[in-house]
Simulated scan of single mutants.
Amino acid sequence: MSDLTHFDENGAARMVDVTSKGVTDRFARAAASVRMHPETLNLIVNKALAKGDVLAVARLAGIMASKQTPHLIPLCHPLMITSVTVDFKIETAESLVQISAEVKTSGQTGVEMEALTAATVAALTIYDMCKAVDKGMVISDVMLIEKRGGKSGIFRRETQSDAKS
């Protein structure tokens, strides 16, 4: 059939069997960006939106989302996540918020999807909290930046522009 692991020899979807895989420390970092009007970014930075502290709420949403990944993505394994962090970098010149989500576990399968889910939901939360003042925001550059652990070893994206080429 193919080398895609989520399909059996007949092409039917399946959850990958990780029973025989060894337990190793796993880590993944993902990113996302939200571009907006400078006035909107200013409201976020000054915590002046009526809905409250946008980044604090987005951080909690990202953390909560990472723990819900197997409920959102059908073939993901439920994992005992040991750490989740969601951080933000304000890029005033480009009028955007860069999101970084890191997830750790010790287990038989990786946490890439959990990190991607955390970054994406944090971005969606920023959009939701700011849409009353800026419906033209753009969520972009959702990508895996780094992963470690397991048989496939280490992956590191050299630069975020690598994803665009």
Rank of each mutant, 00 (worst) to 15 (best):
D3V: 13
D3K: 14
D3N: 15
D3Q: 15
D3T: 14
D3R: 14
D3L: 15
L4A: 04
L4H: 07
L4V: 08
L4R: 07
L4C: 08
L4D: 03
L4P: 05
T5D: 05
T5G: 12
T5V: 14
T5C: 09
H6P: 02
H6M: 03
H6Q: 02
H6Y: 11
H6T: 09
H6K: 07
H6S: 07
H6L: 09
H6R: 08
H6G: 08
F7K: 02
F7W: 06
F7L: 12
F7M: 09
F7T: 05
D8E: 03
D8Q: 10
E9R: 13
E9L: 09
E9A: 12
E9S: 15
E9Q: 14
N10I: 01
N10V: 00
N10T: 12
N10C: 00
N10M: 06
N10G: 08
G11C: 01
G11F: 12
G11E: 03
G11L: 06
G11R: 11
G11M: 03
G11S: 05
A12Q: 13
A12C: 08
A13C: 01
A13W: 07
A13E: 07
A13K: 08
A13S: 02
A13G: 06
A13T: 09
R14Q: 15
R14F: 06
R14K: 15
R14W: 01
R14I: 15
R14M: 15
M15G: 04
M15L: 10
M15H: 06
M15A: 04
V16H: 01
V16C: 08
V16E: 01
V16T: 11
V16Y: 01
D17E: 10
D17S: 04
D17A: 07
D17H: 07
V18E: 02
T19Y: 00
T19I: 04
T19W: 01
T19V: 00
T19F: 03
S20I: 00
S20A: 14
S20K: 13
S20N: 13
K21V: 03
K21D: 12
K21E: 15
G22I: 03
G22S: 13
G22Y: 00
G22Q: 05
G22N: 08
G22L: 05
G22D: 02
V23P: 03
V23Y: 05
V23Q: 04
V23K: 00
T24M: 00
T24A: 02
T24L: 05
D25F: 07
D25K: 15
R26D: 12
R26I: 10
R26Y: 12
R26N: 13
F27D: 01
F27S: 10
F27Y: 15
F27M: 12
F27I: 06
F27H: 13
F27W: 11
A28Y: 10
A28C: 10
A28S: 10
A28I: 07
A28V: 09
R29S: 11
R29M: 04
R29L: 14
R29W: 00
R29T: 12
A30P: 04
A30S: 08
A30W: 02
A30Q: 02
A30C: 07
A30N: 08
A30D: 02
A30M: 07
A31N: 12
A31H: 13
A31T: 14
A31F: 10
A31V: 13
A32W: 15
A32Y: 08
A32K: 04
S33L: 00
S33T: 10
S33N: 09
